[in-house]
Simulated scan of single mutants.
Amino acid sequence: MTLEIDNFTYQQIHVGDGISLNAAVAGAGTPVVLLHGFPQTHLMWRHVASDLAADHTVICPDLRGYGDSSKPVEKDESSYSKRTMGNDVVALAAALGHEKFALVGHDRGALVAFRAAMDHPDTVTHLGSLDVLPTLDMWNVMHGTSAAVGFHLYLMAQPPGLAETMIANSAEAFFGYFLDVWTKNPEAIPAQYRAAYLSSSAQAVTSIVADYRASAGIDVAHDQADVDAGNRLTMPVAVLQQDWGQALGFDAQEIWGAWARNLQHQTTTSGHFMAEENPPEIAQFIRDLVAR
């Protein structure tokens, strides 16, 4: 059985270069695009998206390389750079008639949202980020034994071949591990959704690894170029994350403040999969952001 967000219409939207994104769309009003994280698909937004659709046009795509979206062969790092994936999202919104929109991302989707906002400041009106740091800063805060929590980042940063083989040979155990250890409320991801995430990820090992590999190379270069040029996010930015900055020894609000002129930063008591663990909190977070 194919799982869908109730009362949403599904489309395959061409975004250029033979790439199409699977997108669920519903509602009317100010457009909000929601980007999923790892190891999930757009379905992670099912509760929040249904809530927001009461007063917004809500667009929930599967990112390039995930879910039912295109999974192009990795020609080089740019194939799955966050710049490329962000450009996909901008093209998707434009194809649906939205030249400006609010953009909220979780995990990998938040990195794509960040890059899209940096590259398209006249298009992304508001930026919301759930539980990440910008790519450059993510790598900078990882050090010593505390970096063990991000072992998967280092594994998938390796040249093509090894990580893909290892993960493909134990896909359910690998992807299931993160669904288990990153949540404080396992019941928030019912069995049928867990199965859908694991099945989808198992079919996308190569593209998921390519996404992560880009974050250890070209994505860092793009962030550093913005730092060197003094570029900052100009739209209202809201960040909600676990207080893992305190646990790992850094100030997340200070890090985000270096990027955003108009920042609202807050922490949550939910686990990593907060859109499923506490949908009302996330829906309100997004409404508050868009109202700014």
Rank of each mutant, 00 (worst) to 15 (best):
N7T: 07
T145K: 13
T183Y: 07
V181S: 08
S69W: 08
G144E: 10
P160M: 13
L52N: 00
D6F: 03
M156H: 12
A110T: 02
I282V: 15
L153Y: 11
W244P: 00
I5T: 06
T57D: 10
I208N: 09
L133P: 01
I59D: 00
H36R: 10
C60Y: 09
Y10N: 15
S170W: 04
T145L: 10
L153F: 14
L111K: 13
V227M: 10
A210H: 02
A188Q: 05
L179E: 04
H56L: 11
S70N: 07
P280Q: 13
W182F: 09
S81L: 08
L263A: 09
T9Y: 02
V209E: 06
H56D: 09
V205N: 06
F101N: 08
M166A: 15
T267K: 06
W45Y: 06
P134R: 01
P280D: 12
D243V: 04
A110K: 03
Q253T: 05
A214F: 05
L162E: 13
E77L: 15
E99N: 15
S79L: 05
L3F: 04
E172W: 04
D17E: 15
T145Y: 10
F101G: 07
P186M: 08
H14N: 15
A196M: 11
V237R: 00
S70I: 10
